[in-house]
Structures are given as C-alpha cells and as structure tokens.
Computed example of a mutant assay.
Amino acid sequence: MIILAFFLGHWYLSVLMQTLFLHRYAAHQMFTMSKGWEKVFYVLTFIGQGSSFLSPRAYGIMHRLHHAYADTEADPHSPKYSDNMMDMMWKTRQFYNDILNNRDSIPAKFKKGVPNWQWMERFGDRWLVRLAWGTAYTLFYIQFATSPWLFLLLPVHYLMGPVHGAIINWCAHLYGYTNFKVADTAKNLLPFDFLMMGESYHNNHHKFGGRPNFGGFRWHEFDPAYPLLLLLNKVGVIRLRFGRDEAYM
C-alpha cells in the first residue's frame, strides 16, 4: 500500500504541475502570477517531476510549436512522422534539448513571455540532480516494496514527465473521440479523465487553445485541474486571463 500511495502521489503531483504550470501557464499563458509565485511553481514542478524535471521555458516554446504546426513535419511530436511511441519520444527529446541549450532557430514570437528562472532551469537539468532523485526513488522501493514485481514501476518514476507527455502526444492523436473538427488528428482520449487531470481532452484543447477548462462539452467531461485554477484565482495566487477560445498569441 505504501508503494502504491507513493506511485499515485508522484503520478498526480507530476501531471498536475505539468498541466497547470508547464502547459496552461508557460505555453498558453491562460493566467498570470507574480514572479514570487512563479518560483513557487518552479519548485513544485521540480519536486513533482523529480528526475524527469522539464524546463518550463523549453516546454512552453515546444508546445506552442505543436499547436502551430500540429501533425506536420514541423511538429515536435506527431505520430504521423514517427514509427512508434519510443521513436517520437526520442525525436521530442532532441527537439527539447536544442531549445534548452539555445541551439534552435525558432521565431521569437514562440518565445514571448515564457517563464525563465535560469538557476532552477540549470539546476533541475543537472545529471547529478537527476541521479539523486532516481536514487531516492530506488531506496524508497528497497525499504517499502513488498514484492519484486513492484520494482517494475521504478522506470515510470524515473521518466514521469516524458511519460505523461508521450501518453497525450501519441495516444491522443491516434485513439479516442472528437467533439470538434480541427485541422489535425487531436482526439479526446478518455471520456472521464481520471488519469491525466484534464489533459486527455486533447480535441477540445486543440479547438479552443486558450480555454482554461479543457472539459465541459459533454456531460461526462470533467477537467479536475479547472476547479483548482478557479480556487487559485479566487485567493489571488493567479489571475485568469483568457476567455473561452482566445489563444496565447
């Protein structure tokens, strides 16, 4: 039970930080926050993703390109141009690293307003830091795992951030249902998104790129992250900016 609770806690904290901070804030600027709160969210993302910490700056830029060029050769991650999920993940990693290390030639409009706490960006990307997180996960399993089979979950801990991205960027462009006709293959992966905190409503999101609520178009569509956004907005941590369908650019 301890291992299961640890795995679920890591899964949901990681995906929550990815959807709130990296996706809805860094990429789409659906809300604003102070520089102080921005650093708090950087730290929470670092804790949530751990060994697979993703740069909010690089993620934000890369995801904007995904929306601008979805399912074309310029898309950083499209199943149409990859042989399998691992191939797509490897191509995404190369694209991400080029942005992270300033080796890209991406137009400036895609970089406007992305968060960039340089110290945390560098610290979270250090291999020694990633190895320290991975070692901590492993030691926790050695202490509390009641079966050798449970150790099969460890690779997911090591790669939690990319795993979440691959589920949506691969599966939600191949499987699921659509509410709207869009210019790409984005689909709603789950009728009730208990797994990805609203991220699986990919077709809805591609239709309304700036809408903070990814669900809500059918009776069964509930975006678990949206009530949290409303709460954070109410208490003044963030300020929601966009309406139903306004985009980030």
Results as ranks from 00 to 15, higher is better:
D193I: 04
A225M: 14
P76N: 07
L65H: 06
T138P: 01
D98Q: 14
A225K: 15
Y175A: 03
F41R: 04
M197A: 09
S14P: 13
P212A: 10
W219M: 13
A132H: 09
Y175M: 03
D223R: 09
C171D: 14
M86P: 05
R103S: 08
A58S: 15
K91M: 02
H66F: 06
W133R: 08
G215V: 15
G161M: 01
F144G: 00
Y25T: 09
T32E: 06
L232H: 08
A166I: 00
Y248I: 08
G243R: 05
N97S: 07
K181G: 10
A166M: 09
Y96A: 14
Y69C: 13
W149M: 08
S82I: 08
G215T: 11
D104P: 15
R241L: 09
A5Q: 06
H63L: 01
A58C: 07
R103Q: 15
L54Y: 07
V235Y: 07
K111Q: 06
W219S: 12
E199G: 13
M33G: 10
I47P: 09
Y81S: 12
Q18C: 00
A186P: 03
D104Q: 15
L195H: 04
H206K: 13
Y137D: 10
Q18F: 01
C171E: 15
G216S: 02
P212Q: 10
N203H: 04
A145M: 09
P115C: 01
F242H: 03
R93F: 10
V114A: 15
N101G: 01
A172P: 03
H164E: 06
I142M: 10
R244C: 04
E38V: 06
M62F: 01
R93V: 11
G210N: 13
N84L: 03
P212K: 03
L150S: 02
L232S: 07
L150K: 00
L229G: 07
Y81A: 12
A172Y: 02
G134V: 12
I61F: 02
A68V: 03
Y226C: 05
R103W: 04
L232W: 07
Q18P: 01
W127V: 05
T32C: 00
F180I: 14
M88V: 12
A247G: 11
G176F: 03
I238P: 13
L139G: 13
F7S: 10
D75A: 12
V129H: 12
V40R: 02
L8C: 14
H206I: 05
L153N: 05
A136H: 12
S34D: 05
G36L: 02
L4E: 13
A68F: 07
W90C: 10
M33C: 06
K181P: 12
L174E: 15
D71T: 02
T72P: 11
P212Y: 13
M197K: 00
N84D: 06
M197N: 03
A247Q: 11
A225T: 15
R24Y: 04
K80R: 05
M85V: 13
F53A: 08
G216E: 03
D83G: 09
Y201F: 11
C171R: 05
G210D: 12
Y69M: 07
L128E: 14
F31D: 08
